[in-house]
């Protein structure tokens, strides 16, 4: 029985993740169009809603090109390494508390309830560097190689700030378990959300959001792709479904990072003024909060120009890392004083 429940949960969560990723490809084009006074895709299905489906079909039927001189095995490994870690991380995100659907007790609405949930997310998002760097190297193309190198250097640098900022939350809530992190914040008073912790919370939230932008290679930090300089960066030589996998990986990583920001700083599934909300309200709240961050990803992309590469590295090492460290120290001081 518990096995069946896990299967159902898995189907729900992964269906949701892939659905969100697909919807994001449409949302990206729609929102960018709206911001540029255009209309955006509106031909496939009502209002263009079936555009992701059309894109998927197109990707499947595209010719698959492997460049001459590419290292075949690693070339194939690249997209897999980009997509799989991003998809795995969703397993520990709690979407709602105790859930009962049609009288069946589903327990916590997340695939697993790991004690080290946060660490699991960070470890796997660290592994997603490999997609870009391996794909870039194996393509046997200068643009791809440069894109891959940039991606890896950037992600390794920003991972430090990401971990330090996440540690601030761990210190505030006294646990690495994502469920417990949410439960600490779920008191019915939304001022208990970590983003409302004076100074520490706000600095942490801003730092965390910006570092997730860098971690997922999104604008204004998308040096791995950087069309004007590197054609397409690490996926220049990829086509067909392999390219689609890179895309899927990017959007899944964005979704997971938006979920994680929600869990860490916005109280996850906790509903303001309603501590014991039914699961469906909690899921709705969670999705609303996550949707805001997903929108922010797109919003920032179509607002800000790309950084310069040295600016990115300076920002990561000389600004974000010290601030994150100081913030962690401040959090420690606040906790030990209170």
């Amino acid at each position: 029985m518990s096995f069946v429940i896990i299967l159902i949960k898995g189907a729900l969560i992964y269906g949701g993740l892939l659905g969100t990723a697909a919807a994001m490809t449409l949302a990206e084009r729609k929102v960018s169009a709206w911001m540029q006074l255009r209309i955006g895709p509106n031909r496939v299905g009502p209002g263009g809603l079936l555009q992701p489906l059309a894109d998927g079909i197109k990707f499947i039927f595209k010719e698959e090109v492997t460049p001459d001189g590419a290292n075949k095995g690693i070339f194939r490994l690249g997209p897999i390494m980009a997509a799989v870690p991003a998809m795995l991380t969703i397993a520990v995100i709690p979407f709602a508390g105790e859930t009962t659907i049609f009288g069946i007790d589903f327990g916590l609405l997340s695939l697993t309830d790991l004690d080290i949930g946060l660490l699991f997310v960070l470890a796997l998002s660290g592994l997603s560097v490999y997609g870009g760097i391996l794909g870039g190297w194996a393509s046997n193309s200068k643009y791809s190689l440069l894109g891959g190198l940039r991606a890896s250097a950037q992600m390794v640098s920003y991972e430090l700030s990401l971990i330090m900022t996440a540690l601030t939350v761990v210190a505030l809530s006294g646990s690495m378990n994502l469920r417990e992190i949410v439960e600490v914040q779920n008191t019915g008073n939304f001022l208990d959300w970590h983003c409302f912790t004076p100074v520490v919370g706000q600095v942490g939230l801003i730092l965390f959001v910006i570092t997730t932008f860098a971690e997922t290679n999104r604008h204004p930090f998308d040096f791995a792709e950087c069309e004007p300089e590197l054609v397409g960066g690490f996926h220049t030589e990829y086509s067909s479904m392999k390219f689609a996998l890179f895309f899927l990986g990017e959007y899944c990583a964005m979704t997971v990072m938006a979920c994680l920001t929600t869990v860490l700083f916005l109280g996850g599934y906790s509903v303001p003024f309603w501590e014991d909300a039914p699961w469906i309200v909690q899921v709705g709240t969670f999705m609303t909060k996550t949707a805001f961050f997903l929108f922010l990803f797109i919003w920032v992309r179509w607002t800000l120009p790309r950084f310069r590469y040295d600016q990115l590295m300076n920002l990561g090492w000389k600004v974000f890392f010290p601030i994150a460290l100081a913030n962690l120290l401040l959090a420690g001081a606040v906790i030990s004083l209170s």
């Binding site: 470890a123 490999y130 760097i133 890896s152 250097a153 390794v156 991972e159």
Partner: peptide
């Protein structure tokens, strides 16, 4: 192990 060795040190090796 995955975070430090897999995510950071091996990336440096690759680099």
């Amino acid at each position: 192990q995955i975070l430090v060795y897999g995510g950071a040190i091996m990336v440096l090796f690759l680099f």
